[in-house]
């Protein structure tokens, strides 16, 4: 009984570790080596459009609403202390440091990550990856690499857009609706937000999340069992694993950046 359970734990540990190994090998094969810009660049641009530009809508709308809600909730607390002039820093710092990178990463995992996993899983199931290999074209370089780079470039940009729209949303509710002074909203924000400490750290966070989310999404697709059930499971796993990984990394990064 105990031996059985031990065996199960051991088996699971081993398969997890070998999963990490396969993911590492995949990424290594995709991005290490001589880049071929003539063929690679158009593929990269196309993926940047599919992964980045097509995610803009959800990012814009969510950013606007999260900024508005933040502003509304923040105002209700701050006004009790007569500190509604600090609404600008509250909205902008929450967005830049935490909500921007994290929510963008979660939305990105749901919108682009799941699509990538399903796309690559289906390519595998319909033997397109195999076929490509037999045509002497490396699917890692041709399929995985452009998607990886597009994701890594797109997500920090999306997070910055999310922040900007969120701050505007905060302005909309705080200043236009609730009557906070526009001058204090912006000037307090300017005085309290530091380019390196807040903006840059947020971008670094977002870049790390991008790497994690896109890597998980690509690996889950590439490693999917090529059946309809296998692909559906891989897609679910992408969203769940990537979301949890983002939250875990967020804690670690926050501790490193703002902890001491």
């Amino acid at each position: 009984m105990i031996a059985n359970r031990l065996q199960k734990i051991g088996h699971q540990t081993l398969s997890t570790i070998s999963g990490f190994g396969r993911a590492g090998i995949m990424l290594f094969g995709a991005i290490v080596g001589k880049p071929d810009f003539r063929k690679g660049f158009p593929l990269f641009i196309k993926q940047l459009y599919v992964i980045g530009v097509l995610s803009l809508m959800i990012i814009l709308v969510s950013g606007l609403f999260i900024g508005m809600v933040l502003s509304l909730q923040g105002y209700n607390v701050l006004v009790k202390f007569g500190a509604e002039g600090m609404l600008g820093p509250l909205v902008s710092l929450s967005l830049l440091r935490e909500l921007g990178p994290v929510v963008t990463a979660l939305l990105f995992a749901g919108r682009a990550g799941s699509a990538l996993t399903a796309e690559i899983g289906l390519m595998k199931a319909t033997e397109q990856l195999s076929g490509m290999e037999m045509m002497a074209v490396d699917p890692l370089r041709r399929i995985i690499a452009p998607r990886f780079w597009a994701g890594v470039v797109a997500m920090p940009l999306l997070a910055l857009i999310f922040n900007a729209v969120g701050i505007l949303g905060g302005h909309l509710v705080g200043v236009e609706w609730l009557g906070v002074d526009a001058g204090s909203y912006w000037s307090a924000m300017q005085a309290n937000v530091d380019l390196y400490q807040d903006v840059l750290n947020g971008v670094i966070k977002s870049a790390v999340f991008a790497l994690v989310v896109i890597w998980i999404a690509l690996h889950k697709g590439f490693d999917a069992i090529p059946t309809s059930e296998g692909i559906s499971r891989a897609t679910t796993q992408t969203v769940v694993t990537a979301s949890l990984a983002v939250l875990g990394f967020d804690f670690i990064l926050t501790a490193l950046m703002f902890g001491g």
């Binding site: 319909t126 033997e127 397109q128 195999s130 076929g131 037999m134 045509m135």
Partner: peptide, 9 residues
């Protein structure tokens, strides 16, 4: 060499 897959691929 080339290969014709069952599904066409």
């Amino acid at each position: 060499m080339s290969m014709l897959f069952q599904s066409g691929a």
